[in-house]
Write a protein that binds this DNA or RNA. Sequence first.
RNA 1: GCCCCAGUAGCUCAAGGGACAGAGCAACGGUCUUCUAAACCGUUGGUUGCAGGUUCGAGUCCUGCCUGGGGCGCCA
Length: 575
Amino acid sequence: MIRDDIIRLIERAIKKAQKKGDLPSFDVPEVTLERPKEEIHGDYATPVCMSMARLARMAPVQIAEKIVARMERPDYIGSVEVAHPGFINIALSNAWVAAQVEAILGQGERFGHVNRGQGRRVQVEYISANPTGPLTIGSGRNAVLGDTLANVLAAAGWQVQREFYVNDTGNQMELFAASLYTRYAQALGRDMPLPEAGYPGSYLVEMGQAIAAEFGDRFLGMERDQALGALQAEGLKRMLAEIEADAKSMGIYFDHWKSEQSLYDDGTYGAIFNKLSADGWLIHREGAVWFKGDRGGPHSSQARIDSENGKRGPEEQEDKDNVVVRSDGRPTYFASDIAYVWDKLVTRGFDWAIYVWGADHHGHVPRMKAVTHALGLDPERVTVILYQLVTLKRGGELVRMGKRTGEIITLREVVEEIGADATRLMLLTRSADSQMELDLTLAVQESRENPVYYVQYSYARIASIFRYAQEQGMSLEGGDVSLLTHPAEQALIRQMIQLSAIIALCAETLSPHHLTHYAQKLASAFHSFYEECRVVSQDPAHVDLGKARLKLVLAAKTVLANTLTLMGVSTPEVM
RNA sequence: GCCCCAGUAGCUCAAGGGACAGAGCAACGGUCUUCUAAACCGUUGGUUGCAGGUUCGAGUCCUGCCUGGGGCGCCA
């Protein structure tokens, strides 16, 4: 990446300046490179001289001048300047920038990819919504975050597996089955109340009717327990089919659907329970089995050391005990989570497990870290991405929502109203840390002005240029990209070559929202170019430039496509 | 009571400790006989919740407070 090349260039210049005695010797701090806000400051800038002032006992500007004097000037460097209060500003050479068009065309859909992962295996587990009801808009945020992150990590050189964890056992599943039983019985004319804390949503009424229509009264004839089991299986199958369809409507496909129940069936849970028990992490109290927090654990001193080494922040210390097995003998979902993390990191051997959770689960992060540690695994191999909840409004009115309250605005409704592309971008634009307030009424109105169309429109315009060029018998064969010297052309290419840095940034910070802002900048650069630079022209004097521009436009199409694809947004040829 | 996240332009949000805090929408003024005006060009708009601190430099880091949201042993 050009960015890394420039950093190394500066590092070499500093060392050389020290060696030649221009600068005193001291440990050189990390050279950071940023994109200046002002165009006049060039393509890259480093503030490193400011942080060296004290070490060198020199004024930042003087340091900068010494470094600049020792800097090599490879062909990609256009200009190097020192600016107050001590920046080194670097501009790429126009010739090198123009040449990048060929490089982009050569790399095609791989352009922008980096190799930070070096083939290591990461699992991204996302959505994993309880299959007790349809996906909500909150699941939508989870879905978009997880899916885009998976795309980004794959582009950053990781081997990625996308997983949906199916909570097909436990308390909520039993309540789901009992609620479905009631609705099914009601569909057949029986009078039966919903169980306490059951699922009141109308979707179960419909499902009860559908099952009654298909199976008749078959389940009413069974023992209640047997009927519950059969209905749970049937309901789960139907619910998962809907979830899969909703995910698909947003372009999301999973590599694997992992059953919670399977962790019990295949013995993982039993083995892990024994291991934790043998290692002294479990205690019996009040009739239940508890996992000891860091304070009580046998290796609590080790936990503290890890914390001091920065491996785990103090906010990740778990100082509470957590129930693994209830006093009635049934395991909690935390029990399966323990088996699951073992399954991920040991049985299946992922180097890294990423969970995407809503902020309402943030209290569970410390105990996941604690239990990973207790299993003898490095807690750093587990990362939980928390996203703040989506508050929903309709016409300014707050909608309290949840599968268990019965009032649900489904992801499907939103996708049907404003489209998958707009939904994805809307949920992706904000950083995961910021709460979203979504007014459905407004979202439908505003979807016409959604930034997604701005970006897609640039893509469609390019497609249109190519249709017209073909009509006019014009081709890019033999185009000479060194002719691309117009400021608008240069600005567009400079934007295009940022993609790899953006992918690296998104992967390192696990914040895919940077992509959306990049996409808009890229589209903006294209639209400006489009206004200023004619591509297809009858003017004979324009032939060579036209060919070069056609190459540029094809490269822009490539970069736009790569960016949109990473975000899971479609690339329309016509709008 | 304790823990987590947020508070930035009228609205929705950006901003790897760096230069004059940026976009979009909204408002206002221009630009289509030539590849898509879902666009472009320009103008207006800010005490970054408040008070301290660290730093050459703070929207960003630290402490306290205010407001909103979420969480705190047998729901998930």
